[in-house]
């Protein structure tokens, strides 16, 4: 009986939001200096369920609803972190970074360096990202590249419940600022059905996933597909479809953008010779270009073909036919894999 129970515990599947919340709850229990600030994180439990149930356990002093003043409360997280506390601040949608970016990129991200590391900023900035539900140009972006471009912050993008928990433990314990970008479509929110995939078995006990370790989600010989977030699942679907045609794609989930696990990507390209990079961010000056550049710098001889699949350089349009057009779909990924092979 006891054995059966523990087996069940290992098999226990969680949504990505539950897994994220479990890690936050655990760290808050262990360390009184961890607290969470954001809009609608208390009674509402986070618009995207990022703090569901935490108010009941930890109360309003540690699960703090704050005014719609992102500059003030994200900056306050910076200040509290510099005092040695471990705040988590939530930007409800990453798209809102515009109203508070100075605190993020000039203070949070630079204070360590500008102080010659005499100061450090052990905070987590969580933010919901992504489209696919027609919320238009100001509520649908991922902006992965924007945050990863600016030095001084670690950038984490989970694609499964298992990773969400391990990366969150690591993020809170990290002595540097970590931007934790969770995709709305993956959270398992009742009103925004998730695809198959992000809901995974999650161990009860805490565990960490080190930053800078990409995950080979599917091994393959023919083409390397490098992606992150929601598009991990779309790429896996594309790979499964193509397998029926005898095309064997390898799918790599980057999991963290800063630090970036270039080695796993290079090893894969060495094997396949063909690289497809898939991103839900804008095409130019972003993740796709960066991955291709790294492979070109260090593995040019292996490289026979390169394709990138990303949002063309337009703001996210509202109407369904246009949103579907610009956010890469499974068919777009399939087409890119085929074309990398031809």
């Amino acid at each position: 009986m006891a054995q059966k129970e523990s087996q069940q515990a290992v098999e226990r599947e969680l949504t990505m939001s539950r897994a994220m919340v479990e890690a936050i709850g655990h760290e808050m229990r262990e360390n009184e200096e961890v607290f969470y600030m954001g809009e609608d994180v208390a009674d509402y439990g986070g618009i995207f369920d990022s703090t569901q149930g935490l108010l009941e356990e930890f109360g309003r002093d540690r699960i703090m609803d704050v005014p719609i003043s992102e500059t003030a409360y994200i900056g306050a997280a910076v200040g509290a972190a510099q005092q040695g506390m471990r705040p988590i601040a939530e930007l409800m949608f990453v798209d809102f970074f515009g109203v508070c970016m100075d605190q993020i990129y000039n203070q949070m991200a630079k204070n360590t360096y500008m102080s010659g590391a005499s100061v450090n900023v052990p905070m987590v900035l969580t933010a919901a990202v992504g489209g696919t539900y027609n919320d238009a140009a100001q509520h649908s972006q991922t902006l992965y590249g924007t945050f990863a471009h600016l030095p001084g912050m670690k950038v984490v993008v989970p694609s499964t419940a298992y990773d969400a928990k391990g990366l969150m433990h690591n993020a809170i314990r990290d002595d540097d600022p970590v931007v934790y970008m969770f995709h709305k479509r993956l959270m398992g929110i009742g009103w925004m059905p998730a695809p198959d995939g992000p809901k995974t078995p999650v161990p009860d006990e805490p565990y960490t996933i080190p930053f800078g370790s990409a995950d080979v989600k599917r091994e393959g010989e023919d083409v390397t597909v490098v992606t992150l977030g929601l598009h991990v699942h779309r790429a896996l679907e594309a790979a499964d479809d193509l397998a029926e045609d005898g095309i064997d794609a390898e799918v790599i989930d980057l999991r963290t953008l800063v630090p970036l696990d270039t080695e796993t990507v290079l090893d894969s390209v060495e094997k396949t010779g063909r690289l497809v990079v898939v991103d839900e961010d804008y095409r130019s000056y972003g993740v796709t270009g960066e991955i291709i550049a790294r492979v070109a710098e260090e593995g040019l001889a292996d490289l026979e073909a390169v394709e990138r699949v990303a949002v063309p350089d337009v703001p996210l349009p509202y109407a369904r036919p246009m949103e579907d057009e610009v956010i890469p779909g499974t068919e777009d990924i399939e087409a890119a894999i085929r074309s990398a092979r031809s």
């Binding site: 027609n134 919320d135 238009a136 140009a137 100001q138 509520h139 703001p315 509202y318 109407a319 246009m322």
Partner: peptide, 8 residues
Amino acid sequence: KGKGGHMH
């Protein structure tokens, strides 16, 4: 032209 939606 369908680009903005209800908030825009």
